[in-house]
Simulated assay, not measured.
Amino acid sequence: MKIAVVQMTTGPDSVENLAHALGKLEEAATQGARLVVFPEATSQAFDSGRLDTQAQDLEGPFASGLREAARAHGVTLVAGMFRPADTVEREGKTIERVYNTALITGPDIHRGYDKIHTFDAYSYRESDTVKPGAELVLFDVEGVTVGVATCYDIRFPEQFRDLARQGAEVIVVPTSWMDGPEKLYQWRTLTAARALDSTSWIVAAGQARPGGAEMAGQATGPTGIGHSCVVGPTGRREAEAGYEPEIIVYDLDLEQVAKARKSLPVL
């Protein structure tokens, strides 16, 4: 199955981000991709203003625009967006929280996965503004079962193992990975480890690094480190982007999953 990983930088405006994503989708589909994976926060970048002001449900203009384009191109896509969730009180303030949702849309599907593990680490508290999800999500693309995880989820092995136990051969991971000391090392280690844990293909699409390679290694908010990747079920890194915007197109060999699970029956 041919997949595309879109590494891009999004900004504060969901309308502009949609237009940007539609252009990248057309480029990926033209190269023959059947599954196209965009980063977390495709609809609105983190640290670019309040998330609740542009949060939309799955019938809103952002998700609907991607659905129409995906159907027109005959592909399935996954892209990060934010949906209205609930209202909470934090330190005397009323906060309209959102779900951090991975939109899954295409010819035969239109649904979302809500990120289960919110990023409460490195002095950042995603749970203040984002309500955690509670359910695993899987879907099919041309007979291949695909699981979904988002960014910080990748630090939790059981989610990936559970997805594989439910039939996932490919797990897509939209991401907006925080840069900083040892963060790239951790990202590379974790993506390989989750492939080995689940004996599945890991297809991870990240936000490109704002400022590019010149800013690499500096501690910033969860706005991207680049290095989107495709990792095989034995942990080998088959493709990896750099810091800049890029599209990776790769043909997944699903027979490798069966071989890995026969030789490494860790599930």
Rank of each mutant, 00 (worst) to 15 (best):
F160C: 04
T145M: 12
Q159H: 11
A149H: 05
F160E: 05
G133A: 05
D140V: 10
T145G: 11
E158W: 11
G133E: 03
V144T: 15
R155H: 13
C151K: 02
T145Y: 05
D128I: 06
E142T: 08
D162M: 11
V146Q: 06
Q159V: 13
I154R: 15
G143K: 08
V148Y: 01
V141Y: 10
V130L: 04
D128Q: 10
E158V: 08
E142R: 13
T150S: 14
T145P: 08
V130D: 01
D128N: 10
C151E: 02
I154S: 13
L138S: 15
R155G: 08
P157L: 07
V144F: 09
F139W: 05
E142C: 08
V146S: 12
E135P: 00
G133H: 02
D140A: 14
L163N: 01
T150E: 11
G143H: 08
G147S: 07
R155D: 10
P157R: 13
D128F: 14
T129Q: 13
R161M: 08
K131W: 05
V137L: 12
T150R: 04
I154V: 15
V141D: 11
P157T: 08
P157F: 03
V148W: 00
V148L: 03
P132F: 04
P157W: 02
G143R: 07
A164R: 12
L138P: 05
F139R: 07
D153R: 00
F156V: 14
G147V: 00
D162Y: 07
D153T: 01
R155I: 08
F139G: 07
Q159C: 05
D140K: 13
T145F: 07
F156W: 09
A149P: 01
L138W: 03
A149D: 05
K131G: 04
E142N: 15
T129N: 14
Y152N: 07
L163A: 03
G143C: 10
K131A: 14
V141S: 10
V146W: 06
V148F: 01
D128S: 07
A149I: 06
V130G: 03
K131N: 06
E135F: 04
D153P: 00
V146E: 06
Y152E: 05
R161V: 12
A134H: 11
D128Y: 13
L138T: 15
V130P: 00
G133V: 02
V144C: 13
F156K: 13
G143T: 06
I154A: 12
G143D: 09
V146N: 07
D140E: 15
T129I: 15
L163H: 04
D162P: 00
A134P: 00
V141C: 10
P132I: 01
D162T: 12
E135C: 02
T150Y: 00
T150H: 05
C151S: 02
V144W: 09
L138D: 13
F156N: 11
C151V: 02
D128P: 03
V137S: 07
G133P: 00
V144K: 12
D140G: 11
V144G: 15
F156A: 13
C151M: 01
Q159P: 00
T150L: 09
L163Q: 04
V144H: 15
